[in-house]
């Protein structure tokens, strides 16, 4: 299976691990990630205003690319996934917006036809967690791992449609597929503070600490995430258990992890 892959800015720089392990794991699972040519940064956050057009064009170009190749668009960074899925939804549901966007596009118009998958959704819906389970070489049995969804993976649910936004299971099912114990805790879908660490570092610290504290109280020995900013905020604000990208864990379980200096 071949998919159009949108890595995003951070995965080419500070989050090279997330990118590298995505490739290696996908290939171990029989999925080829074809990097979208000349992709541009998604912008990090989706601007919900209906009259914002220019900031969403990079996402539309990536979507159109995948659609024209008849491939699902797969992203691994929570932020890219959120922005691209929200943009695609706006293209499907807001005709005025789509018309404005299409005036910027060179050739045929695009109306939200592409299918957007987060890497986790790809594992669940295209690969299948049962298949994943079979391919695990190094079972992570006995590890108590907490999934940290943050806000971007699940919300707004009307658009993301990834899982139950208040009681998600996709990452827990992923953890279990790798043989580990999933630790369920209430703060797993609460915000780490996101970009607010620029404006109010204290606010980000309070939010991040509350997440780690809650995960640890529930017995977690490790937290996994799909978002470079979540990882940064949790670590910078003193997480005293490892915070790792879910793809790193995946690569380890699939036996394709190797030392990198990313």
């Amino acid at each position: 299976m071949k998919v159009s892959y949108f890595p995003g800015c951070t995965l080419k720089n500070k989050a090279k691990d997330l990118d590298l392990y995505s490739y290696k794991s996908a290939s171990a699972l029989g999925v080829t990630l074809e990097e979208i040519e000349n992709w541009q940064c998604c912008g990090g956050v989706f601007t919900s205003a209906d009259d914002e057009v220019a900031t969403k064009l990079s996402s539309v170009r990536a979507l159109k690319y995948a659609f024209e190749r008849n491939e699902p668009l797969v992203t691994v960074c929570s932020a890219c996934h959120n922005v691209i899925k929200q943009t695609n939804y706006a293209m499907q549901t807001n005709k005025t917006f789509a018309d404005k966007v299409n005036r910027y596009m060179a050739e045929d118009s695009y109306n939200g036809e592409a299918e957007v998958y987060h890497y986790l959704e790809m594992l669940r819906d295209l690969v299948g967690f049962d298949t994943l389970k079979e391919k695990v070489v190094n079972s992570l049995k006995g590890k108590k791992i907490a999934a940290y969804y943050g806000c971007l993976l699940l919300r707004p649910n009307k658009v993301m449609r990834m899982d139950d936004p208040e009681n998600p299971t996709i990452m827990e099912d992923f953890i279990r597929a790798l043989g580990a114990d999933a630790v369920v805790y209430a703060k797993r879908n609460e915000c780490c503070g996101g970009y607010i660490s620029v404006e109010s570092p204290d606010s980000a610290r309070r939010n991040s600490n509350a997440v780690v504290k809650n995960a640890k109280a529930a017995g977690a020995e490790m937290i996994i995430t799909a978002c470079p900013l979540c990882k940064y905020n949790l670590e910078k604000n003193g997480a005293d258990i490892p915070v790792v990208y879910f793809t790193e864990l995946l690569a380890e379980a699939l036996g394709v992890k190797e030392d990198t200096n990313a």
């Binding site: 995003g8 800015c9 951070t10 720089n13 500070k14 989050a15 940064c41 912008g43 990090g44 956050v45 601007t47 900031t55 960074c77 932020a79 996101g194 970009y195 660490s197 620029v198 404006e199 978002c227 470079p228 900013l229 990882k231 940064y232 670590e235 910078k236």
Partner: peptide, 19 residues
């Protein structure tokens, strides 16, 4: 003044978009 060696690009991009 904002960045340290671990700051992800995502943080700056998002902050610029919001502010």
């Amino acid at each position: 003044a904002i960045v340290d060696e671990d700051t992800p690009q995502q943080l700056l991009v998002s902050a610029f978009r919001k502010y």
